[in-house]
Nucleic acid binder design. Structure first.
Length: 494
RNA sequence: GCUGCCAUCGUCUAGCGGUUUAGGACAUCGCCCUCUCAAGGCGGAGAUCACGGGUUCAAAUCCCGUUGGCAGCGCCA
């Protein structure tokens, strides 16, 4: 059994989007599972829309996702290079097979203008036929062709589709799908500018790169009969095809820009982890028998199989992605989260957010808030109060725990007494501080909460936060007392 | 319009003829834990398996049809 070879072949006309990542991921997992090769090929034959920037974006996104390719840009294997279709075109790779098709009379030049072809399609559709080119240049004589050339007409090359019969696709995910050839038209395989079209270049490259399995989005399924016919015409062995179900937006339409974030980069900017995105995406269209939800990449490689890929489209659900991101963050050590956070700041050019922050304090603060973090971008707002000179006292927090009718009776007393007593305190560990607060509540015959809450707000400015006493321990005696006094002066000594 | 694909809780899904009072996960609700917020634990609600016909002793599971959704129909990929 030969080793399997799969590829991901994006066209560099924009960012790498979620659907593309899913296709790349399934190809990656399949190749790793089968101990095969994962190839990256750039399909840049659309000269108008392809950009160098987009190539860079796609490459860096793939790297961030750790979807590493065995062959492709930056990883050129002489036998199959280059991996950019325009470079392959320059090397006349497609020309050779185009000529072969022409010589065998399996393709022909077509001189029709875009307007003429459009008119044919409209006419066909009007008569309830599928819109197609009517093949009028198919039978032009050599003289007629010469005449057109003399007239200065430019030609595209069209492929001669068999006129009858049907083309059968044996899809690894969907099974047998049959297409009636009479519904398919003589499609263009080389544009007037000499560049091959997708359906042709794709077949030639897949063949030359010895691709054994083509895993791609369902939206390509109607291209497949055309490609199968090219393989047949050239007498080539075909790869196996597997068409993955689509990813939909909340409204049921294919996920696109209007649904909000579709670029991987946007998720990275939001503070999602690479692992979370991968794990979430694999759940859309693939599952295990026991419905396991959380996987490491090693587990995915081990367990992945085409047999367990679903056929129905699935809706992208940000809520579940968010949950998974929290899970992935919790699965890491606080120090790892700190490193990821620093990387994220760098990536988003947000390093100024933590300028002046003590790094050791930050690491420990992250540890205290560890299981609350769902997105890396939430970290600053979770721990910033540790680092500020002026505590930002949230109005509702102050009103509720310091100045309300019920709380003001004891809040001032708790703060004033604590400021004094804590000054005397030698042991500022969390456990000792907690003991202090509990003893204090008992002594004053008030509830523990009536001690804890005012202290929390005085120190952090808010009602939510990490464990109060760990927070105090981390902040240190001087700072804690300073803040308590600031609060006293601010709210009770006006 | 034509062709193709798809159809199980709000969402992702398990299920591949009887073991199903249809299981899990997210979201949601409640309880517990608890110094707050989370996390965690426990539990609830939530799917006449799109609809209609068959086949069968037996169907969410097989077949046909209907409806609906989506995709494709480019000198884009």
């Amino acid at each position: 059994m030969d080793t399997i070879r799969v590829r991901f072949a994006p066209s560099p006309t924009g960012d790498l989007h979620i659907g593309g990542v899913r296709t790349a991921l399934f190809n990656y997992l399949y190749s790793k599972n089968k101990n095969g090769k994962f190839i990256l090929r750039i399909e840049d034959t659309d000269e108008v829309r392809s950009t160098k920037e987009s190539v860079e974006v796609i490459l860096s996104a793939m790297k961030w996702l750790k979807l590493s390719w065995d062959e492709g840009p930056g990883n050129e294997i002489r036998e199959y290079a280059p991996y950019y279709q325009m470079e392959r075109k320059e090397k006349h790779i497609y020309k050779k097979y185009l000529d072969e098709l022409l010589n065998k009379d399996l393709a022909y030049p077509c001189y029709c203008t875009t307007e003429e072809v459009d008119a044919m399609r409209k006419e066909a559709q009007k008569n309830k036929f599928p819109p197609k080119y009517d093949g009028r240049c198919r039978h032009l004589s050599v003289e007629q062709r010469k005449q057109k050339e003399v007239e200065g007409k430019t030609a595209v090359i069209r492929f001669k589709m068999p006129q009858g019969g049907s083309t059968v696709l044996d899809d690894l995910i969907r099974g047998i799908v049959e297409f009636d050839n009479s519904l398919l038209d003589d499609f263009v395989i080389m544009k007037a500018n000499g560049v091959p079209t997708y359906n042709f270049a794709c077949v030639v490259d897949d063949y030359l790169m010895k691709i054994t399995h083509v895993l791609r989005g369902d939206d390509h399924i109607s291209n497949t009969p055309k490609q199968i016919q090219i393989y047949t015409a050239l007498g080539w062995n075909m790869p196996r095809f597997a068409h993955l179900s689509m990813i939909l937006g909340p409204d049921g339409a294919r996920l696109s820009k209007r649904h909000g974030h579709t670029s991987v980069l946007e998720y990275r900017k939001e503070g999602y982890l690479q692992e979370a995105l991968i794990n979430y995406l694999v759940l859309l269209g693939w599952s295990t028998q026991d419905s396991q939800q959380i996987f490491t990449i090693e587990e995915l490689i081990e367990k992945f199989s085409l047999e367990r890929c679903g056929v129905s489209p699935s809706t992208f659900d940000t809520a579940k992605l968010l949950w998974l991101n929290g899970e992935k963050i919790r699965a890491k050590t606080p120090l790892e989260v700190y490193d990821l956070f620093v990387d994220w700041l760098k990536y988003t050019n947000n390093e100024s957010l933590i300028s002046g922050w003590d790094k050791d304090l930050l690491k420990q603060a992250i540890a205290l808030e560890h299981d609350k973090i769902r997105l890396l971008k939430e970290i600053p707002s979770l721990v910033d109060f540790f680092f500020v000179k002026e505590v930002d006292y949230k109005e509702d927090a102050v009103m509720k725990t310091l100045l309300s009718e019920e709380s003001k009776v004891f809040a001032e007393m708790v703060l004033v007494e604590s400021a004094n007593r804590l000054l005397e305190k030698e042991d500022f560990s969390a456990s000792s501080l907690e003991q202090y607060a509990r003893d204090f509540a008992e002594e004053k015959k008030i509830k523990t909460g009536q001690v804890f809450h005012p202290l929390r707000v005085a120190i952090s400015g808010r009602t939510q936060g990490p464990s109060l006493f760990h927070m105090m321990e981390l902040m240190g005696k001087d700072e804690v007392i300073r803040r308590i006094n600031v609060a006293i002066n601010k709210f009770f000594r006006k």
